[in-house]
């Protein structure tokens, strides 16, 4: 914690003292940021030209649908990283988010299959998701456990509870709500795609359009200063973990609708969620996590997988290319940040 604070302070005083230097660096950062975005654009252009049917409305909506689950989860992760600070070992992180989604999906599907209605089942899933989030908040804020460790322990609890509930089997589910999510559409856009659009809009407005969002950044960027300014740091940090649990619950309903069931193995999404949230920082001017950036990187990951599919490239390449891109983007970013970025 103290290292992060010192680091930020040093960054701030640097900027004041060496304005010329910082202007140069800002220009460099701009070039790099545009470069990274240009690299993304180049990949997309390649797909547009060479992948048959890539730009068809049907395909693009399909990508948005496929990205909905990852997107909702990545928003939760982004909120936690914003509120907890982006230092990856000491800062905010929620490793339990994907397992939490699996647990919520299991609860939702099990309750539906037991004959409870949509209302109760959705309520229960959201309650479970937020309870897991509250447990993370208790561990991180109340007990002062490192987020990485606390959420790791909660990951095990959530994953284990999912397994006990479903006995590691597929629990089929159907309900009016799921029916609407699967086949409903409005203005030619399917319900699942709408879910991502509406959820994105809400998250972007809350985090980037309200004073609440601004305070959240303050808390994550410089907890000491935020405390001195009278903000309740524990409240904001707790809020992000509960929000992350809420996102997991929403994503669980989307995943049950997409697969018409809750299935084991949702924990595997964790790495993609992390990648999306961290990759998103390159879209922001100061290389901080933003909701818009996360949305772009989620769509990018979705388009990448989709483009590969259309080009008939084996899906085994997708992970590797995703990994290489993360490394490329982060290497460029740390180069752009110069001395500020290196530890």
């Amino acid at each position: 914690m103290s290292a992060t604070v010192l680091h930020t302070e040093a960054g701030v005083s640097d900027e004041k003292q060496a304005a010329a230097k910082s202007a140069g660096r800002r220009f460099g950062a701009l070039v790099v940021r545009l470069g990274a975005i240009a690299a993304f654009a180049a990949i997309m252009a390649y797909f547009v030209i060479f992948a048959p049917g890539f730009t068809s409305t049907f395909n693009l909506i399909n990508v948005v649908e496929q990205s909905a689950i990852l997107g909702v989860l990545a928003y939760g992760m982004t909120a936690v990283i914003i509120g907890g600070g982006s230092d990856v070992t000491e800062g905010g992180i929620d490793l339990s988010i994907a397992a939490n989604m699996g647990l919520c999906a299991a609860v939702y599907a099990t309750l539906l299959s037991m004959g409870y209605g949509d209302f109760l089942s959705v309520l229960a899933a959201i309650a479970v998701g937020m309870a897991v989030g509250a447990l993370n908040a208790l561990a991180v804020v109340g007990l002062g456990i490192l987020p990485l460790l606390a959420t790791l322990a909660v990951l095990n609890v959530a994953a284990g509870m999912e397994l006990t509930l479903t006995q590691n089997t597929v629990v089929g589910a159907s309900s009016p709500l799921l029916g609407v999510l699967v086949s409903g559409s409005f203005l030619g856009i399917s319900a699942l795609a709408w879910a991502l659009i509406v959820f994105s809009a809400i998250m972007i407005v809350i985090v980037h359009g309200t004073s609440f969002g601004l305070r959240l950044y303050a808390v994550g960027g410089h907890p000491e200063a935020a405390r001195a300014a009278g903000l309740s740091v524990p409240f904001y940090v707790s809020f992000t973990y509960v929000l992350s649990g809420f996102c997991a619950a929403v994503a669980s309903i989307l995943t049950v609708s997409r697969l018409s069931a809750s299935t084991p193995g949702s924990g595997e999404l964790l790495l993609s969620v992390l990648a999306a949230a961290l990759l998103g920082t390159v879209f922001s001017r100061r290389f901080v996590p933003t909701m818009g950036g996360t949305l772009l990187s989620v769509l990018f990951i979705g388009l990448l997988a989709n483009g590969f599919q259309l080009l008939n490239v084996s899906s085994y390449w997708v992970n590797g290319v995703q990994g290489a891109l993360i490394l490329l983007v982060v290497a460029i970013t740390s180069f752009a940040r110069g001395s500020e970025g290196s530890r």
Binding site: L271, G320, G323, I326, L327, A331, S334, F335
Partner: peptide, 14 residues
Amino acid sequence: LNISPFLATLGVLF
């Protein structure tokens, strides 16, 4: 390349 260990090894994992 000055990549933080967390991200570097995450990339290598993928």
